[in-house]
């Protein structure tokens, strides 16, 4: 039973666009899948204590490089997306290599990456003649809006399958990392860098690998986001706001678990969506409650970090494994499980 469950879920998910799912739920699912992919990519490194506040930058790069190459160079996203991934990888390397080489960890690493996310956002703003600055940027439509060459699909059904693939890829990579030797190395590094180095682990190289991988996957999420919405703005895919949002969703879902980021995406996006509908309803009655959604959101995140630091899924799995876990000494960091 347990063995077939993932396949059954996978089959259901693939069949979603073929059974006449209405447009609105389909749209929500696409958005959730795109963000789940980004969140999962962040957690690739986040679960090892490499807390980056710079993933908004990678997402921005993924979205903008692809869209700018298409609009100004006429270069198909089939080449543009790999180019944007390489750009994100290069950016991650340039910032992360010295960071790791000079043992910039914890707070300091978070703040250096925060600066990175500001740099990228500000560059987009400063080059507003080309990028549209804070007003955003719209990729040119190809023909009637559906073109495999331009990776643009007027119908949501096709795009659903595309992002489903992307999401599955991010989960696959998570699993592969989880089962590799690198995972043990990173676990050791997150506990104590110097001892790990003494034990023969290439600290800088290992951290760099996971960072570049995480950055590239995040950029891919950004590119998908832009191709789907056909619009990007620096505050929608980048900046400190998005960088924090990524971390929060992961924390809410469960940072150390396989499906945690996805659960986090479902919870946070559904909540935002429900609140948005309530606010819109109230506005027609003349009550303006703009900001209510993020008020509750922010409050919830603070409460989560105080009371449920392992996230919803992490806590749930702990409870389920309760009987066994109680007998053993409580682990400081739950071992992974999907």
């Amino acid at each position: 039973m347990k063995k077939f469950l993932p396949y059954a879920i996978g089959l259901v998910m693939i069949s979603v666009p073929f059974i006449g799912t209405p447009q609105y739920p389909l749209h929500l699912m696409i958005v959730i899948l795109i963000w789940s992919m980004v969140y999962t990519s962040w957690s690739l490194m986040g679960r090892f204590g490499l807390v980056s506040l710079g993933h908004g930058a990678f997402m921005t790069v993924g979205a903008y490089v692809t869209a700018l190459l298409w609009n100004y160079g006429g270069i198909s996203p089939w080449i543009g997306i790999p180019a944007s991934l390489l750009t994100a990888a290069a950016l991650a390397f340039i910032v992360a290599y010295p960071c790791f080489q000079f043992r910039i960890i914890g707070h300091y690493f978070a703040l250096v990456t925060l600066a990175l996310s500001e740099v990228v956002r500000l560059i987009i703003m400063a080059t507003r003649d080309y990028t549209g600055g804070s007003l955003g940027f719209t990729p040119n439509r190809e023909g009637d809006g559906t073109s495999l060459y331009a990776l643009q699909f007027a119908d949501k059904e096709t795009f659903y399958l595309v992002v489903l693939g992307g999401w599955a890829l991010s989960l696959l990579i998570w699993k592969l990392v989880d089962r590799s030797m690198m995972r043990y190395a990173l676990d050791a590094i997150s506990e104590d860098e110097e001892s790990s180095a003494a034990a023969g682990i290439y600290v800088t190289r290992t951290k760099l690998k996971i960072t570049v991988l995480s950055a590239m996957m995040t950029a891919l999420g950004g590119a998908f986001y832009c191709q789907y919405q056909m619009f990007v703005a620096p505050d929608v895919v980048g900046g400190i706001g998005i960088s924090l949002q990524i971390i929060f969703a992961v924390v809410v879902g469960g940072i150390y678990t396989w499906m945690g980021p996805t659960i986090g995406a479902i919870i946070t996006i559904m909540m935002t969506e429900i609140f948005r509908n309530i606010i819109t309803d109230l506005r027609t009655e003349g009550i303006d409650l703009a900001g209510l959604d993020t008020t509750v959101y922010g409050l919830m995140l603070v409460l989560f970090i105080i009371f449920l630091p392992k996230g919803v899924l992490g806590e749930l799995l702990d409870r389920l494994a309760g009987g066994r876990a109680k007998k053993q000494a409580p682990a400081t960091q739950p071992a992974d499980s999907g």
Binding site: L244, I247, V251, G291, L292, T294, Y297, G298, L299, L301
Partner: peptide, 16 residues
């Protein structure tokens, strides 16, 4: 991160 959550909270309370 907790103070980051407060950042969202404060911004939206002010908006509200």
């Amino acid at each position: 991160l907790a103070t980051g959550g407060l950042l969202f909270f404060f911004q939206s309370v002010a908006t509200l």
